[in-house]
């Protein structure tokens, strides 16, 4: 992550850092005057030699950043694990969360236990933080939830609405993704859409609440739900984004994103030429930018007649960082060695 340190000395651009050592993601948005928004957290990556490292905490250290705002879009493990540590470390930063908690799905595997424990831990940390009214930030699509980010920045919560949050409990099989908190960050003329894991119906509701051209005008998108087509929406991604507009996504690594024809990546390519992905699903040590054909080629091994993909050992520096000028154009784009671009 050495390149990240260079951003610390850049006081002209808005910085957007997307971290995603599959599975998991975090978005860091920093203004030149030193205000940082941290959206989500994850523990990882998964290589045994790298255990006990916290990618977000490490990135913040390298950036020399002290978060002004912390936010949890929804309490799935790949967004919530490790958030507690950030809340404890940056113990005066407001903590955002959708004020609805649905018990994480059960399961009896060790992984299910782990996920549930991480999510409950994050909830407890947020509860504790919210005892201080200054730290309470209810992520609801309401002007009262808007927050400043530095002198010229603003964070706006796009979803869920209060009604959507209230209704979440009534669903027979409630979904965190359906009520995850998508956000819009503005700074001078720059506009970013951070998609969380919001699903398509959620985006439709957002579009109904907002001017229909707003998303289309955004200068950068963090694709929702790791690029899955369950989160695709024309407004969210922009109807016809120019190719220079960064669209970043983080792989979940269990078939998300899906590279099959007609599915996640293929559909994204209907409108977007280049997708900046922090790491390759099933990444097995590929050091540089790869194309779809390369990713498909990795899925050729067989075990007992069953198609197999490579191992799950990811390089640690799975990240993209963009520096945006006040007019929204990209100044620089940096990436870690695990990152890649998926080209149409």
């Amino acid at each position: 992550m050495d390149d990240l340190a260079a951003l610390a000395d850049d006081d002209e651009h808005l910085h957007v850092v997307l971290i995603g050592p599959s599975p998991g993601e975090s978005v860091l948005v920093g203004t030149p005057d030193g205000a940082w928004l941290v959206v989500d957290s994850m523990l990882g990556p998964t290589h045994p030699s790298q255990q006990d490292r916290h990618p977000v905490a490490e990135a913040l250290r390298r950036l020399g950043a002290y978060p002004s705002l912390l936010a949890l879009t929804h309490p799935h493990h790949d967004h919530a694990s490790g958030l507690t540590d950030l809340i404890n470390t940056y113990d005066d930063a407001p903590v955002g969360c959708v004020p609805v908690w649905i018990a994480p799905a059960g399961g009896m595997s060790s992984t299910a236990m782990l996920l549930k424990g991480d999510a409950e831990d994050a909830r407890a940390a947020i509860e504790r933080a919210w005892k201080d009214p200054v730290r309470e930030w209810r992520l609801l699509a309401d002007p009262s939830a808007d927050r400043s980010l530095g002198t010229h920045g603003r964070v706006e919560v796009l979803s869920p609405s209060q009604q959507e949050a209230d209704a979440a409990h009534a669903y027979p099989t409630p979904s965190f993704n359906a009520i995850s908190a998508a956000m819009r960050v503005t700074w001078h003329d720059v506009e970013l859409i951070l998609g969380a894991d919001l699903t398509t119906p959620g985006w439709q509701a957002v579009q109904g609440r907002r001017a229909p051209t707003t998303g289309d005008a955004a200068h950068m998108h963090k694709a929702s739900h790791h690029g899955s087509d369950t989160g695709h929406h024309a407004w969210a991604l922009g109807v016809a984004p120019p190719t220079h507009r960064p669209v970043g996504l983080t792989p979940y690594n269990v078939r998300v994103p899906n590279f099959a024809p007609g599915r996640d990546i293929d559909k994204l390519h209907d409108t977007i030429d280049e997708l900046a992905m922090t790491a390759v699903p099933g990444y097995a040590g590929n050091p540089g930018p790869v194309q779809v054909a390369s990713i498909r080629a990795a899925r050729t091994a067989t075990v007992g007649g069953v198609p197999a993909v490579g191992g799950r050992h990811l390089a640690f520096d799975a990240w993209w960082a963009w520096s945006l000028r006040p007019d929204g154009t990209v100044g620089t784009a940096r990436h870690g060695s695990a990152a890649n671009v998926v080209i149409r």
Partner: peptide, 30 residues
């Protein structure tokens, strides 16, 4: 992971080959 739309299961596993002292290699099957 279980994708009921595509009718695909993802199995995360470790493969043990007879006679190989190990440790086994991580595999991900679809």
């Amino acid at each position: 992971a279980l994708d009921l739309q595509d009718q695909v299961a993802v199995i995360q596993g470790m493969q043990v080959i007879d006679g190989d002292p190990g440790p086994p290699q991580t595999q991900e099957l679809m």
